[in-house]
């Protein structure tokens, strides 16, 4: 893990994210969002969490981005101009970034380098999911089922 690789991937990710936040056309913004998520997944790979990076690519780009594209196509009649510049929001975002950066740079305990750790294999993750994380796993399964049924109920045609 070298600083140069991290910085290059971070610049690409943040540029794509900024494009997603400022582009006028919804479809372009969604594609930029997908590129930014690929960058985040690359950072996960660099940090040694390959499985989470793959899950991020599958879930976000394979499901969420495609879902957003479907929604854009279903609400296509409404592709008017979006008022891009809202100085209050921009000011607040810059203030939050400044405050967080100040706090991070001031905290000495986070200026550490990565220790050497054992590789996290899918086998270890699966064992943890089936032993100490079995209740959270079941709850997430229930939550996903409820969310999908709720989404179906929300978009069902109303009876006249």
């Amino acid at each position: 893990m070298s600083s140069a690789a991290v910085v290059i991937i971070a610049i690409l990710t943040l540029a794509a994210a900024l494009a997603a936040a400022t582009l006028q056309k919804l479809m372009h913004a969604t594609l930029s969002f997908a590129v930014a998520l690929v960058g985040v997944a690359a950072l996960f790979f660099l940090l040694g969490a390959e499985f989470v990076g793959l899950v991020l690519v599958f879930v976000y780009i394979g499901a969420v981005a495609v879902l957003i594209v479907f929604t854009i196509l279903l609400t296509r009649r409404d592709v008017g101009k979006d008022r891009a510049a809202n100085w209050g929001g921009a000011f607040l975002a810059v203030a939050v970034f400044g405050g967080l950066t100040w706090a991070i740079l001031k905290t000495q305990s986070v200026a550490v380098v990565a220790p050497h750790i054992r590789l996290v294999t899918v086998k270890r993750i699966g064992e943890a999911l089936m032993t100490s994380y079995v209740w959270p796993l079941q709850c997430v399964g229930l939550l996903l089922t409820a969310a999908l049924i709720g989404a179906l109920v929300l978009v069902m045609e109303e009876k006249p």
Binding site: A10, A20, A93, F97, L105, A111
Partner: peptide, 17 residues
């Protein structure tokens, strides 16, 4: 090698965007 600070700043920037 990068420190934790670098990743935290990247994350803060992504959050602000």
């Amino acid at each position: 090698t990068p420190t934790l600070q670098l990743f935290l700043i990247i994350s803060a920037a992504l959050f602000s965007i």
